[in-house]
Design a protein around this nucleic acid. Sequence first.
DNA 1: AAATCTGCAC
Length: 692
Amino acid sequence: MRGFLAPLKSSRSSSVFNHFRKVIKFPYSSQTNQSFQQRTFFKSNNRDTTLVCNHKRFEETIHIFCQQNRLKEALQILQQIDKPSVSIYSTLIQSCLRSRALQQGKVVHQHIKLSGFVPGLFILNRLLEMYAKCDSLVDAQNLFDEMPDRDLCSWNVLISGYAKMGLLQQAKNLFDKMPDRDNFSWTAMISGYVRHERPNEALELFRMMKRLDNSKSNKFTVSSVLAAAAAVPCLRIGKEIHGYIMRTGLDSDEVVWSALSDMYGKCGSIEEARHIFDKMMDRDIVTWTTMIDRYFQDGKRKEGFDLFADLLRSRIKPNEFTFAGVLNACADQSSEELGKKFHGYMTRVGLDPFPFAASALVHMYSKCGNTVSAERVFKRMPRPDLVSWTSLIAGFAQNGQPDEALWYFELLIKSGTQPDHITFVGVLSACAHAGLVDKGLEYFHSIIEQYGLTHTADHYACIIDLLARSGRFKEAENIINKMSVKPDKFLWASLLGGCRIHGNLKLAERAAEALFEIECENPATYVTLANIYATAGMWTEVAKIRKTMDERGVVKKPGLSWIEIKREVHVFLAGDNSHPKSKEINEFLGKLSKKMKEEGFVPDTKLVLHDVEEEQKEQNLSYHSEKVAVAFGIISTPEGTPIKVFKNLRTCVDCHNAFKFISKIANRKIIVRDSNRFHYFEDGSCSCRDYW
DNA sequence: AAATCTGCAC
């Protein structure tokens, strides 16, 4: 580069020029040619230097433009050269491949054909790869068929291109036809299966490979096959491969170790994964991120954050994937303060506009109930992708801002982006939150009619939720009876919930029966059904359900609520008085209850089985966990501060009503996020129009 | 001269 930029000595340059003048076409007059040189050669060098135009320099210019991804300019210069060398073509094709520029790649291919250059296998394979990677398999296939000679590489490039696109059958056909196979062929085929979620076929192929020719496996093959074992997931097979790796001495590569650790993590053996992680000599950011995320997915938040802290102390820099995982963990426990800290860090290192990281930020702020910040992050994104749009829409929907959610959806459509099935989950739940049944139905039908997508089980669950909540059971049943996919547990649970609100006993029994078949261990189904019977005064049935629960050993999960105050998370369990301020909280709640009764609050006594907590309440002053958390929030923050509380289960009806009164009496905005939605209470009313 | 491990939205 430096040599190229340095001016040539004039005496030498003229002879070089003469040497090449025969093979260079000059479409410009000498005057224009002069300015052309300066324009192309010295973009990055302001020195006014006299240069001689020669073949070599044209080629070097092309190399530089390719390095800078300035394909258009490189192609312009290509037109000036009569007989480009192999390396020029190779550089150009590689550059097209890198920027996935199919059209420019075709121009180069055309140039090769017209220039009379007879491409060797090297160039042809490059072209083949370019077509395969630009997803233009028709061109790749045509070229492959035209090729007079093919080597292993040609086959492999085509196979790995076919396999990556998901055309596994075609790839397999090619693979079977191959005269000879090397480890590239095997790896391409195996990783194709893994990538398209067919791990068992990948493992089968690996077994076949071991049987036919053991020497063909290398670090790439075993990494792929470990990913297959992780995807099943099957610890036994994973351990077998681990043994194989040790026997064959393939354990010297970092990526293999990384895949190994990942396999153990995914197969549920996190200690073993950490053990391998600790033994690794040279951990890269992928390894770190994998390990940290594994902890989070295992519900081990503390270990995850601790490891992240270790990472920040190391010399390895976290990337946007790392932050996406960590922010997701913040979102799960709604730690806005912690999330903000990471946001600040991301801004400092310049990671915040990356789509992956920005979407995670939008998600985190939404899950913490801060749609203002979520929207701000979104608006700052240079080019928001579909995931960011969907995060924002879903965030507004969950936060009781359906108008904003639908407004952003319309904006998304106007921007020309095609929504996907997940976007519509957000849209439909926004309609549910707003009680917009007909609008919801309209969107539901538009999924197929306007957007050419198919209805997923999630869409059906959403629309049944919407119809059942508003008591439109006939329509709900009609949809269920002619659904294109099997109704899942979320759909039945929505229907059951709707039946509870409207006291539809017959349909409730159908829903509960279906739920018992899918997951007989979920206590929520028993409790809801019992409550429906209780409301109808059918006490024998209630007793029967209690008995069945005992027999099957079904236990209601304990309700858990938490609140973050000054970066510290306080967790409350119903009936648990271990918090240092327990006495104060109970006193406050006692006073509050009295005041609430005066204001006309009637505790809901019909719901006998909804909670055991309920029954004990009057006797020992043990309150629902979310009530305790709210009370603690009120007494530990200055007047006027909004209270944000989170619960692992769904908020109970009684508390939902109580919070309306509390928001008025204490003059506080109360925000409760339960397992699946937000509830906003202000001055005696709640924003959720869909709740109970 | 081609490839292997992480991964945001419901």
